[in-house]
Design a binder for these strands. Structure first.
Lengths: 262, 262
DNA sequence: CGTTCAGTTGACCATGATCAAGAGTGGTGG
DNA sequence: CCACCACTCTTGATCATGGTCAACTGAACG
């Protein structure tokens, strides 16, 4: 089985043998272990390396001074934690370990060398960057417009598909290391309400969640409830054949004036 | 006065004369006019060009099939609308004109030429990409954790500073083309509640909003109410001298186990 | 001059928050 | 090995923020 990083990148670009060799080399660098619930890096730090997740789940989060905390994304094996070091001076968010983590740290020079040596990998990096941005947008939509049941169902759908794309599912089962508190922080709800909503999802027989394992007995149903549409994940290597082009700009949906003009 | 694009990029990188010439050339390309409340491009379309906003406000938004709509970011002069064309096949969000817009369309070839010819500009593009991602994270935090009054105050602070950085403010005044409906869609509230919250902000003498113009009589107060901290905007050319480095990873704030391990 | 849209107001309602308490579970140290 | 502690999950009661529905005003524009 190819490593997660390679799998992930092949979702986006066509790799040559040399590219694959480079990725394999990176993946076999000595990994650092971080124990569960510790921080990898905190907002305000000056990052010295890009982190590549090899094993475990991490979360990116932001917080307000009064303690309110919002998880803005999760990172799973094959994910590269922000390229901030590459450009920005300071971390604008924190990264914490949900489970025990194995990460490879890629320093600035190594990073530059890789980018210089492989256009395919550079392209995949851009791609990953844009996809994770698209995921951010979906989260804004999730937290801004969906109600509790939808939000949580949506989160299950997203994480399941992301895990699947790096080979971390069996059938409709996967690890689920998030506590109800983590889910609350990711969805902008309280833990109490997450608890009640999970019970509802269980009773609807859309999920089967216990002992840090998730099973989805009815993926189609869960996607409907979560109003989930996977397009934003851009897992396109599996769906590339659907290449219909739509007509150009028409009107905005809600408030509009019909005073057309080119 | 330099054009908005140059101003914006100089916030991020040091430009040479040649870079500035390139940016000036781009900015003087024939602009396309789009009337207010029309779409520039819609989710699902295959983008043919990157849009550079020259004049006016645009919004990026996503929507659910039942009509709920979430604005995920605004674009003002100097902003470059997603580099999706560069990498991704399909738009995962729509872009609509709030006001009448002037945009320059930059085609794939032109784009590649620029990137190949100027490392500084390429770097600025990466930078812009990462900053707008950081803004997305802030919006997730905004919608997920802040309450109505805070959310709206925060939006005013953010947009004011962004406008300031491209020279579109005078003192503490600026154009404010957003309707209460737009604010509602951006903050995940209803227009009715936005209305009442605006009245509250007015009564607190934190804003003075009428006739599509915003005046902020008490910026410090507004920032406190909105729990606003500008770091995430990475407008660092003006604040670069605060280069303290903080100690490495410590514990995660909320749920944590003290079973440290390197 | 009428239509349309932004803004405003009031009455009522519901989703989800808050507060509090208790049960189950796993890891750690005595 | 067991006792304790901390955390996660669960449940109930009550509350509040913000949503919904509806009607009306005023301004802009054709």
């Amino acid at each position: 089985m190819p490593n997660a990083l390679t799998r992930r990148f092949e979702e986006y670009v066509v790799l040559g043998d040399r590219d694959r060799a480079v990725l394999a080399r990176i993946s076999s660098l000595p990994a650092r272990t971080i124990s569960a619930r510790r921080n990898l890096i905190r907002e305000g730090d000056c990052p010295q390396a890009v982190y590549l997740i090899m094993e475990g789940w991490a979360c990116q989060y932001r917080e307000l001074d009064d303690g309110r905390r919002q998880i803005v994304d999760f990172a799973i094996p094959g994910d590269l934690c922000d390229l901030n070091l590459f450009i920005l001076d300071r971390m604008d968010h924190s990264i914490g370990a949900i489970t025990r983590l194995k990460v490879v740290e890629i320093g600035r020079e190594t990073f530059h060398k890789i980018v210089a040596s492989s256009p395919a990998i550079t392209s995949a990096l851009w791609w990953q960057e844009l996809v994770s941005k698209s995921i951010h947008r979906e989260w804004i939509l999730n937290v801004g417009q969906r109600r509790a049941l939808e939000r949580i169902a949506h989160l299950f759908c997203e994480m399941f598909l992301r895990l699947e794309s790096v080979g971390l599912t069996e059938g409709f089962c996967c690890e689920w290391p998030l506590t109800q508190n983590d889910i609350a922080d990711a969805t902008g709800l309280t833990a109490v309400h997450v608890n009640r909503t999970l019970q509802q999802l269980r009773q609807m027989e859309l999920i089967d969640l216990a002992n840090r394992r998730l099973k989805i007995p009815d993926m189609a149903g869960l996607q409907i409830v979560g109003r989930f549409n996977a397009d934003y994940l851009h897992h396109h290597r599996n769906a590339r054949h659907t290449d219909r082009t739509r007509a150009g700009s028409d009107f905005m949906p809600v408030p509009m004036v019909a005073t057309g003009e080119a």
